[in-house]
Design a protein around this nucleic acid. Sequence first.
RNA 1: GGUCCUGUGGCCGAGUGGCUAGGCUCAGCUCUGCAAAAGCUGCUACAGCGGUUCGAAUCCGCUCGGGACCUCCA
Length: 500
Amino acid sequence: MNQLKVYNSYSRQKEVFKSITPGHIGMYVCGPTVSGESHLGHARPYVTFDVIYRYLMHLGYKVRYVRNITDAGHFEEEGREAVDKISTKAILEKLEPMELVQKYTNLFHWAMEQFNTLPPTIEPTATGHIVEQIGMIEQLIEAGYAYVAKGSVYFDVKKYAASHDYGKLSGRVMEDLQETVRELEGQEEKRDTADFALWKNAAPEHIMRWQSPWGVGFPGWHIECSAMATKYLGAQFDIHGGGMDLLFPHHESEIAQSTICNHISPVRYWIHNNMITINGKKMGKSYNNVIKLTELFIGDHPMLEKAFHPMVVRFFILQTQYRSTLDFSNDALLAAEKGLKRLWEAHEKLGVMSYELGDAETGIRDEELESRITKLISEFDDFMNDDFNTAKVLANLFELVPVINSMKDKTIPVSALSKETFELLQKQMKLYVEDILGLKSVNEADHSKLKGVMDLLIDIRKEAKSKKDFATSDKIRNKLTQLGINLKDEKDGDMSWTIE
RNA sequence: GGUCCUGUGGCCGAGUGGCUAGGCUCAGCUCUGCAAAAGCUGCUACAGCGGUUCGAAUCCGCUCGGGACCUCCA
């Protein structure tokens, strides 16, 4: 089997993956800011890294997966108004900040469950790690890379850049940075425009506030990830993930802070997912073009013709390699919905099939088909090892679909395959569809009682059909269709049904 | 303005210099009491112009278009 290769944003090339501690992987992924509702764009990193997490475990690693909750406020616009965005909304909605944070945290967890993402092994909150953040800032001051100004603390980027390559991750040059940083009020506190805040002095109206050695204030945005990653994953860990838009300044600053405190570059492999676009433009709050997850799930949005199941969204995301942009549209989701249905139904059919050599012939092995199937299956791992190419995995899965359907319809006898190949097919299909890609049925309803009723109706309809009483048989099927249950006649005279 | 990415058939998208990814749509056929599903077949694309090469969607240059980051952002 070939080795896992991942595209490292830091080196801008695919590298062979090797974990620091054999058998173990530490992975940190930037989590949500729970000051508002998650939208479709947020779904991408969480689904992407969920599949990565699942695949790494499949490879046999023990993974510590840390994903933070940013529940301590950051300034809406730095310097302009020293008002934390969480507290602003809290006033508007007449809520306690922590109540608001709790509400959106719960909503986020609910959405993640809908997407069938596995929970991270540690989900630390920024508010729960103020002490660690303050400790880290003190270290930075002591080391001479941070300075205090009017109750705030800033990181001295220029000093850092003199001896480290600040800007390497995001491809930025110090001189450009100093020129291009736009004019902001309150910049005079900083020694240099490129410096970033570690701790901000809190204005009186700022609700989220903590006592610190520099007065009452709140932590800067970048320090929480450095502090929590260090605490749970150590000075250097394997993977750090997040959206591409976090490359600068967030991750660049994280590297700087952690490098000074821990005397080592914090991350071995930086993995960044690309954006979801809408009409070619990034979906984001600044563009005012977001589709919230709740809107997506209930179909309440001008761009949506109907509601889409979370699994459709998950499938939609996985059809694209994570480093490419993914363009959202109603049509694209409709296509994903149909595709997923076909894939899932084939997967279910295969699951209940068994390798029975028909009464007919057993020696009609189809060598060509067999080797094609073996090849398609063996490529799953190859594709995942090549920077987690779920798009290619899905393509292969779809190539298997007609084969499975044909076996079900008996146009291809099971005996065309050896027992080993057939069972391998069953095993790998289940492994990939369910365990690694993390797909599940879009009908989560409990069918146990309904199944009994359906069996009865099918029985009656079969009887009617055998008597050529098509009026009755059509009535049963048509009424069920009206109820949203599709009944279909199978080739072997059996009937099956699906819920819309 | 700076840095970087990108342009694939009706739509979404994969793509290692040579071997028509895949999904959806559309058309035809097969199966079928009808329907649905399924199966088979067809629609053979790589923004434009040059260059490198025996050979380029893939490498290089230019032109045109789209986008990201530089500010909170997944």
